[in-house]
Design a protein around this nucleic acid. Sequence first.
DNA 1: CTCCAGGAACTCC
DNA 2: GGAGTTCATGGA
Length: 298
Amino acid sequence: MSKFFNDVKTEYEGSLPFVRIEYRGAYDLAKTLDCGQAFRWERVGDEWLGVAFGRLISIKQTEQELIIYNSTAEDFYDIWCHYFALDEDYDAIDEELLGNCQNPTFVKALECGRGIRILRQEPWEAVCSFIISQNNNIPRIKKIIDSLSFALGRQIDASLMRDHGAEGREFYSFPTAEAILGAGEEFIFSLKTGFRAKYIMDAATKWCSGEINEAELRGIKKLDDALAYLCRVKGIGLKVASCALLFGFERLDPFPVDVWMKRVLDKYFEKDFDPATFGRYAGVAQQYLFDFERNTAK
DNA sequence: CTCCAGGAACTCC
DNA sequence: GGAGTTCATGGA
């Protein structure tokens, strides 16, 4: 029994299993899935259809409930509770952030962004996706990830999801590093990845050989050391490494600085402001500011 | 046509 | 160790 949601049970719509989660505290599903941290979610009516951990689900939010279609209670506890960060105390995180930084724009960004959660995505997918993200825009990042998955991922049975936007469509898991390595650089380039093709290949090579090892990386507690570890891949710099750690390795301390965050920092913060001021949840602060500048500030 | 996109490598001084 | 250039691609 969690302090953040009810005891979840499997229900059925015909033969489609689903779960209802009565969550407590703030949760903004739309912003969470559409704030640029994940690239495989699509709005279908009042639901979000997407693939993660090799599964196809649809999720929607009502007043005080989240409903996940194509998930049993077991799936929820094994995967989705974790993926959607429903077990994390964001009230406590927000409180600590506000204690560390009283910058007026940040306070405003937090109020606007309250309910955004940092998803816990798959490590390899995060690494690969944020390599693709460099010098690129979000719609095209999504297109490339789609074509990579279509070409090299494993097909997912979508028959139960016909009434949730899956009718007549095919869905694929994100390809493994092995699959990408096996496909070869020319093929990856042919999917419009451009100059990033050789970067993707270097990441896949090092991921497969164990030169970049997930468990080893998780064991590196000091942020700078973890960043340096990922930066051994050609094509991964500070920003991509920060995103990979924040979104794919269950860390909330990295603070990715892209063109948008540079804008935020020199528009609203003192000249030599150090993001480390935010403390161990700096990544959450970054996401509030990122969403604020892109979607709210105007 | 130019400019830009959740950057990073490379080349200069 | 900074500052400027280049890298594919597509949309505005």
